[in-house]
Nucleic acid binder design. Sequence first.
DNA 1: GGCAGTTGTCGAAGCGCTTCGACGGTTCGC
DNA 2: GCGAACCGTCGAAGCGCTTCGACAACTGCC
Lengths: 338, 338
Amino acid sequence: MPTINDVARAAGVSPSTVSYVLSGRRPISAETRARVQAAIAELGFHPHAGARALASSKTNVLALVAPLRVDVNVPVIMQFATAVVTAARSYNHDVLLLTKDEGTAGLERVAHSTMVDALILMDIERDDVRLPAIRRLKQPSVLIGLPVDHAGIACVDLDFEAAAGLALRHLAGHGHRRIGLVGPSPSVYRRQTTYADRFLAGFLQVSGELELRTATHPCEPGVDGARAALADLDTELPGLTALVVHNEEALRPLLDLLRAAGRRVPEDISIVAVCPRDVAVAMPVNLTSIDIPAHDVGTLAVETAMRLLDNRRVDFTRLLEPSLVERDSCREIGPSHR
Amino acid sequence: MPTINDVARAAGVSPSTVSYVLSGRRPISAETRARVQAAIAELGFHPHAGARALASSKTNVLALVAPLRVDVNVPVIMQFATAVVTAARSYNHDVLLLTKDEGTAGLERVAHSTMVDALILMDIERDDVRLPAIRRLKQPSVLIGLPVDHAGIACVDLDFEAAAGLALRHLAGHGHRRIGLVGPSPSVYRRQTTYADRFLAGFLQVSGELELRTATHPCEPGVDGARAALADLDTELPGLTALVVHNEEALRPLLDLLRAAGRRVPEDISIVAVCPRDVAVAMPVNLTSIDIPAHDVGTLAVETAMRLLDNRRVDFTRLLEPSLVERDSCREIGPSHR
DNA sequence: GGCAGTTGTCGAAGCGCTTCGACGGTTCGC
DNA sequence: GCGAACCGTCGAAGCGCTTCGACAACTGCC
């Protein structure tokens, strides 16, 4: 492996000049620059990452802390990861992948040993135990999610509260007055990831504002969970004409159950789903849905990290505007049904 | 951030002694060791990764090159990644996540700049264009998959050829003589990942050995693909009594179609699936299946990398024995049907 | 009792890079 | 035409660690 000294010798300049050509931090004449670049290309020189980190206190590496349990939402997690890696590369950074289950120790390990410049964390819980540690790190962090006490920490997420409102307004605009919410599984509530609560809060508030008749129910995974949730909603809200489904996993069994019961979508019941686009269009009926913009959120997280790294202003809380795409699962109902 | 010098001063020893306490590469008296460790704990010292890498030429980081396109097999990819990260941590290594689409350049970038000690690559194609570059790197690589020309490169994968044989022998053992194979989507064949071909080869060979009547068909994604594949198999092999499905995605639509046509599983038609365990048991009928042991493969890949790093012997090609788990989708058929 | 070997520690060199101050040579403003 | 400001380059220091050789103090052996 050639070093910067080899390049300097080959180009007939000093090592510092090579460094300045590489970093552009001081002016270098066109001819010198050309000679240096030629030498670099010819020798196949790549600066040694460790040496660089040591001398400059920058690693050009981001940590991504992901929940690598293999359960729900795998596709969403993957989309986040893809977006983060891609965005990071566009800023000339690489990504170190940590699992959430190393917990606080993992963060401190990579931060204290100066392996990374900044951290991006997914799957943030309401009172995430890692928060104090995160605040203590000298590296900046960006959270994907919104814990209760997020003062002074950059957070990025979809505005789930607005998303719920959007779903309800869409249905109400089509004449629906009795609307059920199929929520995430109880384990999500238990884990205290806040998106479930934020969605629910938005749902209840807009339900009140529009004076709708609504009922809400979490939904256990599997066919049985879906069956139970549906039965409960039907009982609490007889004659409901629409469902908001904030539970990817439940979509398929729910549609199966409805079909089995002879309830057609959208003729007899309308559905708005909150899920990634691919999931919405992979169903037997193309679902009108509010996208989980994993790609945008991931990209924004990286951008925010970059801004923090060069001390530019950031909005500490960025909740992305939800957007609803109409497909084939909602229909207008006449006044007689209202 | 305290440095090794701070620790040395606090413990009243020289920096090199601290280093030897940390690495254990020279004997240190119990008392000295205790003093040093106390100082380390008190100061919260963590060695600087870059400095370490510079001095020792070891980064304790592995590169994982994953296909981050968001399409089929996301859960499997996730399982590999999880296994790799977990195993790496157990060897005190971290994982740098690269996307396949950076191609050869990505590998060379991290390898030449000495960011990683070894590389693990997923989604290897038959004549993978990265192979020559991989051979040139000074860092060892482990492939998850089996390219044609794998001489001198460590490869780890499920033995898909044996898996096909296992599936056929299981069905034949239950009296089935007319068996169809629903293969991966044509895009997988086009991409030239070899597992599809290896499975097919095993299928055809054992089909011959056992003198079975078989037909094979790739399967486009979606309900329509499944419908077409099923129709073709029925035409080519009228009266088929069993299906081997080597296509995760096709399972669900296939089952839906069979049910819609009034063909019961396993009463009218038996099925052996090749897919992760979770997928097999998430279906309406619990499927007898051959697992894709992503966890084992990932772990083995890391172990292999570690052995290569400390110059221990490795089997350059390790194909994991498939195992079949009986569930509820195969039934014994009487001689009258044979 | 003398020599070889072990044990425990130290000091210094060096890994490959960035960055700071210095410096000679130009250019510019007035 | 003179000082100020800038341009382009160099040399040296230093980032924080590992590792090698040296060495003093023991231990054991004949």
